[in-house]
Design a protein around this nucleic acid. Structure first.
Length: 271
DNA sequence: ATACCGACCTGTCAGC
DNA sequence: TGCTGACAGGTCGGTA
């Protein structure tokens, strides 16, 4: 479910709430858990660790862990929320939602809960140094951005979704950035002119920043670590607006499939 | 190397 | 009311 702005919102919320807290014990659900690392390895890596901070890398939430006592262990707990994952901070009395796969009891008395109905999410522990699969959309400059797309023959929409190029951009913000840059999603990435690449880079960073400021987009079930919805969905100009008039020219927004994903664009404004 | 396409899961909603 | 099928914010692995 969550893309960069949603994960950023969640990670900031988690950091303000649990940084400095200590994980006392971990309960892991049975079933095929959504794990990348072995279950035993995850429990061992988390228990008796201090959360020194929480941040976002691409669409991943990274918990930096230290030893509960003195020496920092420097390991990391990496969570990918998939389509429907949530990471919530709750009191033990709060009802445990269906599809809760992990509960970490904290020294403060609260619980960190990982809930994921579709189980597309992934949990992983590793030694420090996770930097994600690609480049960071918010810090890449126009030159490097152009370089990334220069060599890709894929449709530009598919290239935007390729996490090995840029990580963090998902279906909503790919459509929104292309709309704002006036570029058709099926254009081959390597067919974009220098000027179009500059526009796309600027449009992408603008839309991501605006979405973070709004607390992300809530479509159906997204909530942040507090259980609060985001508000960026009311600023969507293309995504989810099939058949509705383009906000610029009134032409109905079209929906097609690109790279296997529903894709929304204005056939008049986007060239 | 690159690019489609189904698979992975469950929930929801539209249509019959 | 209830069933069926399509679709959903994401990735991965197989195949062409």
């Amino acid at each position: 479910m969550p893309e960069l702005p949603e994960v950023e919102t969640i990670a900031r919320g988690l950091d303000s709430r649990v940084a400095g807290d200590v994980i006392e014990s971990v309960w892991l659900g049975s079933k095929p858990e959504p794990l990348k690392s072995a279950a035993r390895e995850i429990v061992a890596a988390l228990e008796a660790k201090r959360i020194s901070g929480v941040r976002r890398v691409g669409k991943h939430i990274v918990f930096d862990l230290g030893g509960a006592g003195k020496a920092a262990s420097g390991s990391q707990w990496i969570v990918h929320l998939g389509m429907t994952g949530r990471m919530l901070v709750a009191t033990p009395e709060a009802e445990t939602p269906k599809h809760t796969h992990l509960v970490a009891k904290l020294a403060s008395g609260r619980e960190l809960r990982f809930v994921d109905p579709r189980r597309f999410g992934r949990l992983e522990v590793r030694q420090a140094g996770f930097s994600g699969p690609g480049a960071e959309p918010l810090s890449i400059d126009a030159e490097q951005f152009a370089q990334l797309f220069h060599s890709s023959k894929a449709p530009v929409k598919a290239a935007l979704l390729n996490q090995k190029l840029l990580h963090g951009v998902g279906n909503i913000y790919a459509d929104e950035a292309l709309f704002r840059a006036h570029i058709r999603p099926r254009r081959r990435a390597n067919s974009l002119t220098k000027s179009e690449l500059r526009k796309l880079h600027a449009a992408l960073q603008r839309v991501l920043h605006a979405a973070i400021a709004a607390g992300g987009s809530s479509i159906s079930d997204y909530v942040d670590a507090d259980g609060e919805a985001g508000f960026f969905q009311i600023q969507h100009r293309a995504y989810g607006r099939e058949g509705k008039p383009c906000l610029t020219c009134k032409t109905p927004i079209k929906k097609i499939v690109v790279g296997g994903r529903g894709t929304h664009y204005c056939p008049n404004c986007q060239k």
